[in-house]
Structure formats: structure tokens, C-alpha cells
Design a protein around this nucleic acid. Sequence first.
DNA 1: TGCCAGGCCCTCTTTAGGGCCTT
Length: 203
Amino acid sequence: MEVVAVIDFETTGLSPAQGDRATEVAAVILEDGKVVDRYQSLMNTGVRIPPFIESLTGISNEMVRRAPPAAQVMQDVSDFVGDRPLVAHNASFDSKFWDAELARIERSRRQEFVCSLLLSRRIFPLAPSHKLGALVEYANLPVAGRYHRALADAEMAASLLLCLEGELRERHQVSEVSVELLRRIQRVPKGQLKKCIARELSR
DNA sequence: TGCCAGGCCCTCTTTAGGGCCTT
């Protein structure tokens, strides 16, 4: 697989369109089956974190008040990941915040996202849940730290991606798992994974 | 005052509804 950047945001809520902002971002660079570089930072947007979210993430208003400005953090993390393909667990969520926070510093995303949630639904259809934590347990992956902290979640999403790649290699005899193949697999209709892989491998 | 997301996916579907997943 090509070198990819696995990212994760902690935020004040679910929707940047409703005024929610990022509170923390992390990115890990995945190369040759291992994490070779890491970035993590809290970020100060000036938006108050609701008590429920403080409790969920352990990220307090006091912590972000002391953090660097969001503009600086987004510039740094954007430079850190560069043009590498991005991966996130439930990418529809992280891509919204990635795009919204980048737009505030007048930058735009140049690469597509791969979603480990959509992939895990195809590759592990029998998992009891496709939440990140449940998949980590299901696949017996290492717990990288506290759930709902950006770096720990990004590390565990990276482990999950490697696990999914391993499944494709072993169970489906795919010798080379490309980002393009992952993008196609995450859109395959239910029950058509094998057919999709066979079609892709015969190209 | 009351309410507040959105994409994906399944099904008792397609002129819809509801659960999952992210914080």
C-alpha cells in the first residue's frame, strides 16, 4: 500500500455547519506496515466545549485555552500530511472538519479520504459493532491509549487499516492492496466483495 | 421556546424511515 496519513479529530460537537469546531487533531504516517511519524496537537478555536464532550474526551476548556491557535495547528498538520491519501474512521465526519478548518486558513484539501468504517463493514461484516473501539477488540488489536483522544484513535485506526489490509491479502489473496482498491471496496454493495476483488485483480 | 448533522445502509423501500457511526 502507498504511504497514507491516518487522521482523527476531537471536536466540540458533530457538525461544523452548526458552529462546532475542532479541539484536537492527530495524524500518523503509515509506511510499509508501520507508523513512521506522528503529529498531535490540541487547538484553540475560542469555542466553548460542552460538559458532555469534556467528559467524553477528557479535553477541557482550560486545556484548549492554553493550546496553540487553530490556524497554526491546521497549517502544521496540513503540512505534515502533505499530499498523502487520508484515512479516517467514519471519514464523512473527519473530512467535514478537515475541510472546514482548512477553509478558515484559506487552504483546501487536495486528496481523497479512505474510510476504515466503510471498509470494516465490507471486510468484517460479522463484527458485532463497527465502532472503532469494538473493532479493536474484535480484531484483537492493541489499545493505543485513551479512546476519544486524537492520537490514540488515529493509532488504532491505523492498526485497523493494517488489519483490514492483512485480511485482503490472506483471505482474499490480494497481493497488492492499493489505496485505489480500498476506495473501490468501500463502495461495494453488500455480498459483492469477492466479485469486486476478482474484477479488480483481473484489470 | 424548542430545536439543532449527515452519509451510509438496510428493509416491513424507492413518493420512506430508522439505525449506525463520528464528537
